[in-house]
């Protein structure tokens, strides 16, 4: 996550890049803080996986990466041009 890559989030708008960097930095700190909160607060659990430290964080991250990767693969065989149904 180095600095020159961050501008690629907003390539046409370099004036925002420093504010964006700040925002993303703050966001990372919040993420870290939430994982640390697992040390401080006790979560009552029902499912054995829930007892895992930072389970929800890990699950959210993995789930979304999987979601996007699978969706990307789906594009290979499901994507058609916009007028696909129009030309009979």
């Amino acid at each position: 996550m180095n600095q020159h890559k961050e501008t690629s989030l907003n390539p046409n708008d370099s004036s925002h890049s420093s504010r964006l960097r700040w925002g993303i930095g703050l966001f990372f700190m919040l993420c870290a803080g939430l994982v640390l909160a697992d040390f401080i607060f006790h979560r009552h659990t029902i499912h054995p996986w829930e007892t895992l430290w930072g389970f929800y964080a890990l699950f959210g991250f993995v789930a979304c990466v999987l979601l996007v990767l699978i969706a990307k693969v789906m594009r290979l065989f499901l994507m058609r041009s916009e007028d696909y149904y129009d030309n009979r």
């Binding site: 996550m1 961050e6 966001f27 939430l34 991250f61 979304c64 996007v68």
Partner: peptide, 24 residues
Amino acid sequence: IAQLQLLFFSALAFVWLKLSGIYP
């Protein structure tokens, strides 16, 4: 806490995928 972790790390996945250019 569970919900915030889930949401923030979902967002983290978006940020990472977007920055690395993987996001479709």
